[in-house]
Design a protein around this nucleic acid. Structure first.
Length: 741
RNA sequence: GGGCGGUUAGCUCAGUUGGUCAGAGCGCCUCGCUUACACCGAGGAAGUCACAGGUUCGAGUCCUGUACCGCCCACCA
């Protein structure tokens, strides 16, 4: 890759100002310099003007400069003021004496100087400051390096040679004060660049190193996102992307470290450069033909992100045209944290497009960061890091995966702790037990190793049709969420479908039918096959999130002849057919059961006692309720259970529990055997329900009475409001009847 | 100095194109060992959706501003 970049004119070696970390003894990229706000000191220092006659500094004439880094005085090669600054119009062009090094430097005018800052006069240290470097270039100033690699003062900084930079600063200040040239000092809020890794103060300094010319690379990366060939999600990050890539500077890729890919560049005695992609290096110098034995390889290595930037294709055998590369490049979706969008994603894009001609992925999905339960960034020094392996030992990898995905919203950080993993572990456990139940509930008429059979359509009851319809709904919902990269939504859909629908209602209904000896064998078999079918669907849907437990459980259920050995390669489930009518009626049935349970609990009736219960409901749902009567009996502890068409007179002995469903479509009476206490509690519940229903009814009526609403809202919305109003009115009426009697 | 995100039940967070969206999990309260599961089951309480304006018949949901928390980018020594 480097060889290609070099030959394409995109890699070059030059002496330039780099970010030097004295602690790591290496240069680092701009991205690895962390701007850190700190309170420093701003010192005012007098530089004496040179008397033009004597050529000596004038003790009584000076210009005062402001600096936060007095040690860099040793490297000053100019003093700059703004050209339009009236205070200095007379002195521009004269020379000043730099103390200690006794160097005379020009007083120059440059528009970048802020007149309002400090004294309006700025010392220029081109070899140790990015701004000054630019100024030095503009004015062709000498660049004097005064620091060694360990940030001690070098020979150029005599008489302070050998002192650490901060010791040198103290000494210099002392001496300036002694000379009377330290005019003042004051605290100064500033931003200091520190090393991302060692936190040392970064020293800008001159080094001869390799750079990647980023502008053309950034241009093609930008073009790819602008044209939509690569999409960044969430979209708002495209703005960040644009900004960074349009202001990007050339990338220093040389590192003076040991671990990494060594830079494949060789130098001869004449300083010629030979870059080679050969494993053993070049045979001879490209320029002068000196043999390999006389060449020396660059001791530096690449920035780790240079190597990482090649990942999408270097892992596939590139630059060879391998089957893997042909099959898997370009990749599809790049998922990573937003914190490395520049470090990694941008580099993969720039290098990938240039080197392969194709964007490495069509979508970049940026997730948030995982933080500790208090919202702190996890760090080893803080000790708040979750050890995934330890957690996996405790709760399983599936639980960890589920928890991380469940809690994730694209691009937003999530607080993460034990509680979330435990919830996911419980879910896995629930699924495990549900499967255990299904496997154990196999009717004896079905052989243990029987191949998977379709439920007999003719034998399906409403519960079975409901299970199938809900499974279809879940497949559809999961498909949509997946397509939208809403992975947290995927887990939420599956959690609800499996726990609240399949387990809470589906299995409970199935238990009753499976145990019903009065039904023909075929009916019970159909119920079981329906359970297997739904479970099979849910396991397939959940597999990407919880691969291990689903794989194991899937192995335990009967399979079709064309199923593969493993779930991981099994087909994604197709969307089945919905049955809206069944879903609606079952919902009503569930609501009825819940309402009866609620009434019983409110009246503090022993949950295990069986009570005579009367239910009246509309003709459309009545047959279904009759069909599922045994299940209602069991789930509502309603026995005997009497079902009748709505409008039928229900018995209302004292102490009975009165139930009216929203909409008034279902009414029920539970005979408690009369207890004053129960009756009182029950009445309180009914009154509360009435008050709530009346409140909603008033709101609904007010809305419909508003001619603007009726006139402007879409007809479907108005119609919906009318239906709601009717239902509430019905419910209120029924409740009043109950309370009156 | 620019740019961005967050502010919804005690806690952690969902809420796609504005119209039963006020939700989930945990926690809490009351019951319960009913033949898959107490890592469970049944029921329940709990939010003026940060604040102030505005648009609209209608706004957590759109616009403007404010406050607080956080992040990114940035060559005022």
């Amino acid at each position: 890759a480097f060889d290609r970049l070099y030959r394409d004119g995109l890699a070059y070696r030059t002496e330039a100002l780099v970010n030097w970390c004295p602690g790591c003894r290496t240069s680092v990229s701009d991205l690895e310099v962390i701007p850190t706000p700190e309170t420093g000191t701003l010192w005012s220092v007098r530089y004496h003007l040179i008397d033009e006659a004597s050529g000596q500094p004038d003790p009584d004439a000076w210009i005062t400069v402001a600096t936060t880094r007095p040690e860099t005085i040793l490297g000053d090669t100019a003093v700059a003021v703004h050209p339009d600054d009236p205070r200095y119009t007379g002195v521009v062009g004269r020379r000043v004496r730099i103390p200690f090094v006794e160097r005379d430097v020009p007083l120059i005018a440059d528009e970048t100087v802020e007149r309002g800052f400090g004294t309006g006069a700025l010392k220029i240290t081109p070899a140790h400051d990015h701004d000054d470097y630019a100024t030095g270039k503009r004015h062709d100033l000498p660049m004097i390096t005064i620091l060694a690699d360990d940030a001690t003062i070098n020979e150029a900084g005599a008489p302070f040679t050998g002192l650490d930079r901060f010791d040198a600063r103290r000494r210099i200040l002392e001496e300036l004060r002694a000379r009377g040239d330290l005019e003042g000092e004051r605290p100064h809020e500033m931003v200091i660049g520190r090393c991302q890794r060692s936190h040392d103060v970064i020293e800008p300094r001159l080094k001869t190193q390799w750079f990647i010319r980023t502008e053309p690379l950034a241009a093609v990366a930008l073009e790819a996102t602008r044209a939509g060939r690569t999409r960044i999600l969430p979209e708002r990050f495209e703005k960040t992307w644009e900004h960074w890539l349009t202001t990007i500077r050339d990338w220093n890729v040389s590192r003076q470290l040991w671990w990494g890919h060594r830079i494949p560049a060789w130098y001869c005695a004449d300083g010629h450069v030979t870059v080679s992609a050969e494993a053993d290096g070049p045979a001879a110098c490209d320029a002068c033909g000196r043999p390999a034995a006389e060449l020396e390889q660059d001791p530096d290595i690449f920035d780790t992100w240079f190597s990482s930037g090649l990942w999408p294709f270097s892992t596939l055998g590139w630059p060879d045209d391998t089957p893997d590369f042909r099959r898997f490049y370009p990749t599809s979706v790049m998922e990573t944290g937003y914190d490395i969008i520049f470090f990694w994603v941008a580099r993969m894009m720039m290098l990938g497009i240039h080197l392969t001609g194709t964007e490495p992925f069509h979508t970049v999905y940026l997730s948030g960061l995982i933080r500790d339960p208090e919202g702190q960034k996890m760090s080893k020094t803080k000790g708040n890091v979750v050890d995934p392996l330890g957690l996996i030992d405790e709760t399983g990898a599936d639980a960890l995966r589920f928890a991380l995905i469940h809690g994730a919203t694209p691009g937003l950080d999530q607080k993460f702790g034990r509680a979330k993993v435990e919830g996911a572990r419980n879910f896995a456990n629930k699924l495990w037990n549900a499967t255990r139940f299904v496997v154990g509930a196999r009717p004896p008429t079905i052989a243990e190793d029987a191949p998977r059979a379709q439920p007999d359509e003719g034998c399906l009851g409403p519960a079975e049709r409901w299970l199938r319809s809900r499974a279809a709904a879940t497949v559809q919902a999961v498909d949509e969420a997946m397509a939208a990269y809403a992975f947290g939504e995927v887990t939420r859909i599956l959690y609800d479908a499996i726990w609240s629908e399949f387990c809470d209602w589906g299995l409970e209904l199935a238990k009753v039918r499976l145990a019903d000896e009065s039904l023909p064998v075929e009916a019970r078999e159909a119920t079981w096959w329906t359970l297997v079918e739904s479970l099979d669907t849910y396991l397939r849907l959940l597999h990407p999130v919880m691969p291990f437990v689903t794989e194991t459980l899937w192995d335990a259920i009967p399979h079709r002849a064309d199923d593969p050995e493993l779930l991981i390669v099994a087909d994604w489930p197709p969307v089945g057919e919905r049955d809206a009518a069944i879903e609606r009626r079952l919902d009503t049935l569930f609501e009825t059961i819940t309402a009866i349970r609620n009434a019983r609990a409110t009246a503090r009736i022993d949950a295990s006692s069986w009570l005579e219960t009367h239910v009246a409901l509309g003709d459309d749902a009545l047959p279904l309720f009759q069909d599922l009567a045994p299940a209602i009996e069991r789930l509502a502890r309603a026995r005997p259970l009497l079902l009748s068409p709505s409008g039928s007179a229900l018995p209302r002995p004292s102490g009975s529990l009165e139930i009216v469903l929203p909409g008034g479509a279902v009414e029920a009476t539970v005979l408690t055997g009369a207890s004053d206490d129960a009756a009182r509690l029950e009445r309180g519940r009914l009154e509360k329900e009435l008050a709530e229903a009346e409140g909603r009814l008033a709101t609904a009526r007010a809305r419909l009475a508003n001619s603007a609403f009726v006139g402007k809202a879409p007809p479907s919305v108005v119609e919906g409001a009318r239906v709601r109003e009717r239902e509430l009115a019905e419910q209120v009426e029924r409740l009043r009847e109950r309370l009156a009697s």
